[in-house]
Design a protein around this nucleic acid. Structure first.
Length: 586
DNA sequence: ATAGGGTTAG
């Protein structure tokens, strides 16, 4: 060891090389080292130039890297591979593709390493065309069966939205490593196919491939989307019992899973036990409290986060502003919106504008919300912002403004059925049934269908799905009978069904029936039938809960003395003793 | 004297 060091020191690094090593990835010292290299005449040393180039990439100075490359007389494979790798892992995807092209033009042969980096760059760009082109090069160069290249290809196709392409590459693999499985599970999960992601996970276990922390990050995300609490808990147990490394990503995914499956105390428990937290972790817990309607806890955590030195980013502010919106924290919301740009130099995007309009709108400050939108520039006045405004108009029964906003929206997005439904609701509330009919006819002419609502719940680790008026369930008769009995008991306790303002494509006499058998009511009835007293009922619904169901479930929580938790498209409703955690403010 | 991979959280 001692002798070896002697040799390196005496053989010595030239002053230029030493300067290069000392510089690390700081740009000024790198430029000085560059000067040393030129002055000492070692500017033909590909080794030194390679080091300089990769350091420039990691320093974030991609322009400098480009200029340097032009000054290299005959770049070799080593230099190109280093450059492709460094630029790709520093997030300069377009530049990686450019360097790869240079490499080919210089007739330098790419290796399997080159391809993994270039394919990752194409994946970052979500560029299917570019990716397919590189894929064919890889095949031509004989790297089609390299497991690293293949795993990267799975991700490339997944991120470009081509699940079929991802699956083809995956199915063609002769040897599937845990990373390959992780890529495919994540591919499904990222594309909203949670069931398929979980199916893949089971297949992986059938093939006796040991899952790792990364596997579970994706599996837990799938559980979060589905509200699959029992599988989520199983994963948590597995992680603990098998001593798996609880990385920041895994911990954050656990928090998110518990929160989105309705168990806030477990989410908090995981958060408390984590020894490392980053901005994503903080954002997850803030967003969790916000979704559950605990706005002040969310704000408390936000302040803690800042006090502990984590810097909030754009996503954090979406969580904060939406927490304010759902809890009526208007003052705080206004203040944090301002601090976003003033203190953190962040540029508010459409999603922040939506939160702010939503917050002002819910609080009944329609004029302020309207003024806020009108002060945005033309590009910023996105449909989503107007949609939030429209929701506020409906909530506060401002018919004139509502109709104006809806028509504006329909002009921009004539094929969005949601806008028609909202407009027809507003007309119905205003008693303009002629207009309701007109909107309905317009929808029919355009062949637009409103989204089908469904609710799911787990009983004994099995998921049951219900849709409106659904009779496909095996125990349909018992469920409907029990629901009728429940509603009758609720009526005795004072429940009066809310008037139906929802647009139906049904005939008149079917409307009462449809309202009465909304998917969430069916799911609640089934849950009550199938579980013992003291068990909390947890429902996941794909759309917003309707006013009548909200009211009915409050009464159901009284007459059955049960706690019922409903997650709708946007947030949670905890029903207990006739009250809802949203305070009817949703 | 220069590099060494693919998968993951809000």
């Amino acid at each position: 060891m001692e002798a070896k060091r002697q040799i390196t020191e005496s053989f010595g690094h030239s002053p230029a090389h030493q300067a290069l090593l000392r510089a690390g990835s700081r740009i000024r010292p790198l430029q000085q080292a560059h000067a040393h290299i030129v002055v000492s005449g070692s500017h033909r040393s590909l080794a030194l130039l390679t080091k300089l180039l990769t350091s420039a990439c990691t320093a974030g100075s991609i322009g400098y890297a480009h200029r340097l490359l032009y000054s290299v007389p005959n770049p070799d494979a080593f230099l190109f591979n280093s450059l492709v790798k460094a630029s790709s892992s520093s997030g300069f995807a377009i530049d990686t593709v450019f360097f790869y092209h240079r490499m080919r033009r210089c007739r330098v042969s790419p290796s399997s390493y080159t391809f993994t980096s270039v394919i990752k760059a194409c994946a970052d760009l979500s560029s299917l065309g570019l990716g397919k082109c590189v894929h064919s090069h890889a095949l031509a160069c004989g790297y089609g069966s390299d497991r690293f290249v293949q795993a990267a290809l799975v991700t490339l196709y997944a991120k470009s939205g081509d699940l079929g392409g991802a699956r083809t590459v995956f199915d063609d693999m002769s040897e599937r490593t845990v990373v390959a499985w992780n890529s495919m599970i994540s591919a499904y999960e990222q594309n909203g196919c949670s069931r398929e992601a979980i199916g893949m996970f089971y297949r992986m276990r059938d093939r006796s491939v040991q899952p790792d922390s990364t596997t579970f990050v994706s599996v837990l995300s799938a559980c979060s989307q589905l509200g699959a609490l029992s599988l989520g808990c199983w994963v948590h147990d597995y992680v603990v019992n098998n001593g798996l490394d609880v990385t920041v990503a895994l911990g954050t995914s656990l928090i998110n899973m518990y929160a989105r499956c309705g168990n806030m105390s477990k989410a908090q428990e995981v958060f408390d036990l984590m020894n490392e937290r980053n901005v994503v972790t903080w954002t997850a817990i803030i967003s969790a409290y916000g979704m559950h309607g605990y706005g002040s806890q969310a704000m408390e955590l936000f302040h803690q986060m800042k006090a502990r030195g984590s810097r909030p980013n754009n996503v954090t502010f979406v969580a904060v502003l939406s927490a304010c919106a759902h809890s009526g924290l208007v003052q705080e919301g206004r203040r944090e919106y301002a601090s976003m740009s003033q203190e953190y130099g962040l540029v508010p995007g459409v999603e922040h504008h939506v939160c702010l309009v939503d917050m002002l709108g819910r609080a009944g400050l329609l004029d302020e919300a309207y003024k806020f939108i009108n002060e945005l520039n033309h590009v910023e006045q996105a449909p989503a912002v107007w949609t939030a405004m429209l929701g506020a108009c409906k909530m506060h029964k401002n018919f004139d403004l509502g109709v104006e906003v809806a028509e504006r929206l329909l002009a921009v997005e004539p094929d969005n059925p949601g806008h028609y439904v909202m407009l027809s609701n507003i007309y119905a509330l205003a008693g303009r049934m002629d207009r309701v009919e007109m909107v309905r006819n317009k929808m029919i002419r355009r062949r637009l269908k409103k989204q089908v609502g469904y609710s799911t719940l787990e009983v004994d680790q099995k998921t049951h799905l219900f849709s409106m008026g659904d009779k496909s369930h095996l125990e349909t008769n018992a469920i409907y009978q029990y629901l009728d009995e429940l509603i009758w008991r609720c009526r005795e306790a004072g429940y009066v069904p809310a008037p139906d303002s929802v647009l139906h494509e049904l005939e008149e006499e079917e409307r009462e029936y449809a309202l009465r058998y909304h998917s969430e009511k069916l799911a609640v009835a089934f849950g009550l039938l199938k579980t013992s007293h003291g068990t909390t009922i947890r429902i996941v619904k794909n759309l917003r809960i309707c006013e009548d169901c909200h009211l009915a479930i409050k009464y159901i929580s009284i007459v059955t003395n049960r706690e019922i938790i409903v997650r709708d498209r946007l947030r949670f409703h905890h029903f207990k003793d006739g009250h809802c955690s949203c305070l009817d403010y949703w």
